[in-house]
Design a protein around this nucleic acid. Sequence first.
DNA 1: GAGATCCATTAGGAAAGGCTAACTTTTTAA
DNA 2: TTAAAAAGTTAGCCTTTCCTAATGGATCTC
Lengths: 253, 253
Amino acid sequence: MNAAIGKQRGRNGSASLSHSQQDYLKQIFLLSATSRGATTQLLADRIGVRPASVTGMLKKLAEEGLVERAPYRAVHLTETGRRIAVELVRHHRLLEAFLSRTLGYRWDEVHEEAEALEHVISERFEQKVAELLAHPDRDPHGDPIPTRELALEEDQHLTALALLPKGSQGTIRRVTLQDQDALNLVEKLDLLPGTAIEVAGTHPDGISLLVAGSRFLVPSLLAAHLLVDHAPPPSSAQPETREGTGRPVAHEQ
Amino acid sequence: MNAAIGKQRGRNGSASLSHSQQDYLKQIFLLSATSRGATTQLLADRIGVRPASVTGMLKKLAEEGLVERAPYRAVHLTETGRRIAVELVRHHRLLEAFLSRTLGYRWDEVHEEAEALEHVISERFEQKVAELLAHPDRDPHGDPIPTRELALEEDQHLTALALLPKGSQGTIRRVTLQDQDALNLVEKLDLLPGTAIEVAGTHPDGISLLVAGSRFLVPSLLAAHLLVDHAPPPSSAQPETREGTGRPVAHEQ
DNA sequence: GAGATCCATTAGGAAAGGCTAACTTTTTAA
DNA sequence: TTAAAAAGTTAGCCTTTCCTAATGGATCTC
């Protein structure tokens, strides 16, 4: 056995895992929040392997008590598995914030680098970066950063832009995309987190949007990944102060 | 084959290598600067594997044109291999400087973290960190950082403290140690790079040193790893070759 | 409700990179 | 100069993680 990825105990009391195993756990965690759950096929897509490989790995993870699984069913994390996954998510998002804020990465560049670093940084690195950034709670995409205690605040109040009725106003808070091209498009359209928007109309193929006076169509595929802190349509009371001009803030948290 | 460590071409036109292969190249490079050169045994020690594994890997690296080797002889890097090794050394030392200066790591903590990160950071990361630090030319141990063009200035003028004759004065410039305990000792003795010293006497088991007025014994094992920017002793010019405690200084990273 | 279709699993195998044990070559020292 | 010690190599094996091909379930549609 390779000593470097052996079975020493980490801070969670969990065995330390290969990068590959960590990746599986993270993707299971992220997919578990979606409607279909973490299926073999989706995991294979996300991780970049064949479904047969996923099945094999899930068996191993189940033996190690990190997931629970029934054949032909979506897999679920155990509490131990979840802790490891959330720790990775924390690393990832903290790193994204760090790359963006401290090293001046463009917001569409941070994901890939964070993906590589997240498996490798130490507890100390995590802590130092968190301090340097004054314990941020959002990464550049607006995704919440789990706390050191691995509590992950979920955004109950956010709604996908695609689901908003005509007339809704709000502020874009999260962009749940990873694809470079898509991210570049979002930037080009000035739809970064922090941008105030109004829904001018809905169409079968997308949403017509008003941003800083100009109007354009956001394709459904994109609109499903723009999460909005939304107020109900104009007539009723506004619970929250609105962003001034809607001038997008490049790397806001 | 795993696509992530596949054979795409990098900036050097070199195939991208596994972390393991990268480690071998780096250690070959570092050991090549020592008297014994990069032998199977020393590589095994440094990398933390058995000699048989080293032989196997060296064969593979030779096939890929990264090293030249004759059985039972020390191995040498080809120009291609050297470039990859120096790039890693650059990553490592740049990271050490970064961890120390930007994240506030203690100087004895930086090595281990840099060891993990050096294989993983991108060209962009390297560049951004270099900019952030205003293109440093030394890491916290005083080791020179190769330039972006992979030129590595060697310290011709530095001498191991262990080799200095009584009466020599100078300034400590490099500490070529990795061991945490040894580094802590060096710090406790106030022997960090930049410290002015004078050799008060030589003994079979070490060197008696004057630092900031106080006098103490530096064990030979340590003295071999403290590189001094030295002036000749006050009165007479002393011939360089003193033997006895003098053992070759392994330039660890 | 019965194919058709998609998804998941099993079986068998390959590459990477370790290991041990046995053997060969080089070096050292008597 | 030769025998012992040290260093290096070879052969054979193991684990991890991926793959393809074939098979077995689940699901959707008419």
